[in-house]
Amino acid sequence: MNGLTYLKNVVTLSLDIQKCNGCKMCTIVCPHEVFIIKDKKAFIDKKDLCMECGACEKNCPQVAISVKSGVGCAAGIINGILRGTEPSCDCSSSNAKSGCC
């Protein structure tokens, strides 16, 4: 859906095409069709759709993909700032769980 896209030109995703062996794993795990395969190599096709979940990096056997992954969640980021940790959706420091995921 067109209206469901976020800010442009902020995503940290990058791909080293030299290392890519065209195994297609990134196209399988990506939930937003960011990658396409052309001439037996992966390409970043729709970079702004990337939500930095990190699935592609984790499942690239060639270590060709890098992305600073984390939760795209304002409450999680505030949590991180307050606790001095990385942004975390884990809002259950007490017994309560918040609305995030």
Binding site: T5, L7, V10, C50, V71, C73, I77
Partner: peptide
């Protein structure tokens, strides 16, 4: 803004920039 956590398409870098 907190709804970014429930939505399925926002990135960490994007939300940090917005905030």
């Amino acid at each position: 803004m907190n709804y970014t956590g429930t939505s399925t398409f926002t990135s960490l870098s994007g939300v940090q920039k917005e905030m």
